[in-house]
Nucleic acid binder design. Structure first.
Lengths: 168, 168
DNA sequence: ATTTATTTTCAGTAATTTTTGAAACTTCAA
DNA sequence: TTGAAGTTTCAAAAATTACTGAAAATAAAT
């Protein structure tokens, strides 16, 4: 397969993949393009590479920067801004885990705390089922929380090697 | 907080949560409603509980059944079909992991295999960056694949206890 | 067989999300 | 300052995704 063709394929698939995980297609595609670009590139490069508008490009780059996956770089002598993605995929994953945990898991746990102490008699099976469900989810959530925290701190090899040892 | 209010809150939040993970809002809400229902319920119960149409209800129940999260049950003497959700949240998570792995991770790994042997000289930095990116993702994907396979097979306590030990 | 209850399908509609592009804003060099 | 280059914003349009409801299909009862 030719490089140009493979790049297209990768960008397109990465975009489709993103949509299955609640990430918008264009954002994932910009990320893909940056991942396979050896050097920093500009907004115009991205617009051209993906055939998208300036506004769309700008918004999604900003979002990628917010997620901590992309950095703005200023090249000496250049007027335009350039962008570059973190290439170490393990760091990328840790960064995504960190952000999603903060944005989703933490608020969910807070909510579950409130829901857990609903009024009513636990002998009422409606109350019991509700409380049991909420408690079960909370317990799982707390475990995920702890595990992910440790994962975020861990070094790739340390984590992976241990997992391999553990499961072998 | 009153039970009825807490139920509403849970259903609504579970729906919102789902949308962040590529699951459609209604499907997640139906799942939530079933999780907190002590006894099996009918399509009409769901329609009424969530204020949605028959068609929508039917489609999303079918989807939940496909995901292995909900079962159809026939009650003796009843004409209508009833539905019930798996209540053990650890089983639910394993089932979701299993399905998403099959639907998303496996195809992605297959694609990466193809993309990895792109034509061209690795001394060309465009080729090198591309291949390195693809290889990095593939390596991570393979590790995730193995780990998740073991997780799917594992018992809750076994897995969690080991992780806790590992990270302490 | 016919009627009645229930489930499924799907074309059309509605809601939501994403994208565009032009105007406003900012930055910097002359 | 002024203006050219570059960036950001956001209302409107387009695209995508989800939902409705009535008709068709299926299943059970008489």
């Amino acid at each position: 397969m030719k490089l140009i063709e493979a790049k297209q394929q990768f960008i397109s698939s990465w975009g489709a993949f993103g949509t299955h995980w609640g990430i918008n297609r264009t954002m994932a595609q910009i990320h893909a393009l940056l991942l396979i670009s050896p050097d920093p590139i500009t907004q115009d490069d991205i617009m051209e590479g993906l055939n998208i508008s300036r506004g769309n490009t700008n918004m999604n780059i900003r979002e990628l920067i917010n997620w901590g996956l992309v950095d703005r770089v200023i090249l000496p002598g250049e007027r335009k801004e350039f962008f570059i993605a973190e290439k170490d995929i393990w760091k990328v994953v840790r960064q995504i885990v960190k952000e999603r945990k903060k944005r989703e898991l933490d608020p969910m746990l807070k909510l579950l705390d409130q829901l857990e102490d609903v009024d009513g008699d636990k002998r009422d099976k409606n109350v019991k089922t509700f409380v049991d469900t909420i408690s079960g989810i909370k317990r799982l959530g707390l475990q995920a929380d702890r595990t992910l925290d440790l994962m975020i701190k861990a070094e790739e090899n340390w984590f992976v090697n241990n997992l391999i040892k553990l499961f072998k």
